[in-house]
Nucleic acid binder design. Structure first.
Lengths: 193, 193
DNA sequence: TTTTAATTAAACCAATTAGTCTAATTGTTA
DNA sequence: TAACAATTAGACTAATTGGTTTAATTAAAA
């Protein structure tokens, strides 16, 4: 039958809360309240707030790898359009969220990247895993002549990833998707073959 | 003769500390200690931590407008190269800082943009003031044919600004300027006329 | 069924948080 | 110089922080 609480449920709460409010602005008590779990149970699963955040990051990293893969494996579209459809889906999700969410890793990279080496390393590792997936699809598009060849697939992928995060940050204070749509249009115009 | 402490000195400390450590990870006591000022004096100048942060943001916003202007008014270079020299200077500064700094407004926009409406508004206002300055120079470059004309000067300026912030975020976890240099090269290749 | 380990539960703790208060002091102005 | 306002000073407060502890309970293994 198992015990009362499930680690993955607590991780999900952590994801929701950290993504919206960041790290230092969230206390353990808020996690406990939202997850409806006593403190002792939390510290039975996680050895510290930092450890908890790391597991939340890794969990989200993996979920996002699945999401990326599902878009980039869509054989109904060309590689170029698969990539575009993925970024378009990010815009749509962000709009649904009233531009309050953005990407958990972008949020935490910004807040903790220069403060906490462990979290910086974990974040970088997950960022890179996404960039590699993007780069694979860019490579395919390059071979088909859909994307320009004067930069490597990895460089293009890092470029898109950084640009997307930059736009997320910008949207946190504009609360409008207008520029994200424009960014998408411009970026894909710039990189096309 | 004036009193013992100067508001502008406290704002400078706030800038240094918030830029490196963010908002919620910094207590008033840390500001007091670094500025060597008692609590009563701090609250004589600023009515709250939030009010202090707002003034730090506005102060930095203005300083950065001066910096941008100084680069973009350099008549020894063409508009395109003036823009490039400005972004190159950001890379150099960030390197000097061991990639621990980044832009105060990018840091605070990310941490507080969805949480604190006052700070979001102040941040957006200052972001925009920079983007307008950049856009002016982009316009000049467009008139000379140095920058492509299929997007408005404002769109190009927002694009550069967002991209730069995205790269700053990325560098917070990679601690390397490699990709920022590449980002600069790619962006100016993409926008050139 | 007995033993053992994992989990649940919440009271408790030391440290820190932003902010207040009162008194002494300093500078400015009438 | 006298009166007044601004500033300096730091002890104090109430709330919150991440984390610990101990006891009760539940599940799984022998």
């Amino acid at each position: 039958m198992g015990y009362k609480y499930q680690k993955k449920d607590i991780l999900q709460i952590g994801y929701d809360v950290f993504r919206k409010k960041g790290y230092h602005n969230v206390g353990i008590n808020e996690i406990l309240k939202q997850a409806n779990i006593p403190k002792g149970s939390f510290y039975n699963f996680f050895k510290s707030k930092e450890d908890f955040a790391m597991q939340v990051i890794d969990d989200y990293g993996e979920n996002n790898r699945s999401l990326i893969t599902s878009f980039l494996n869509n054989q109904a579209l060309s590689p170029f359009n698969r990539l575009k459809s993925f970024y378009q889906s990010l815009i749509d999700d962000n709009q649904k969220d009233n531009y309050l969410g953005s990407c958990l890793l972008n949020t935490l990279a910004n807040e903790l990247g220069t403060q906490n080496k462990l979290i910086a390393t974990t974040t970088d590792k997950n960022f890179l895993s996404w960039v590699y997936l993007i780069a694979e699809c860019v490579k395919e598009a390059q071979l088909l002549g859909e994307i320009r060849n004067d930069y490597s697939s990895f460089e293009i992928a890092e470029y898109l990833h950084a640009g997307c995060n930059g736009v997320y940050s910008r949207m946190k204070v504009t609360h409008s998707k207008a520029f994200m749509e424009k960014w998408l249009e411009m970026s894909f115009e710039f990189i096309k073959g």
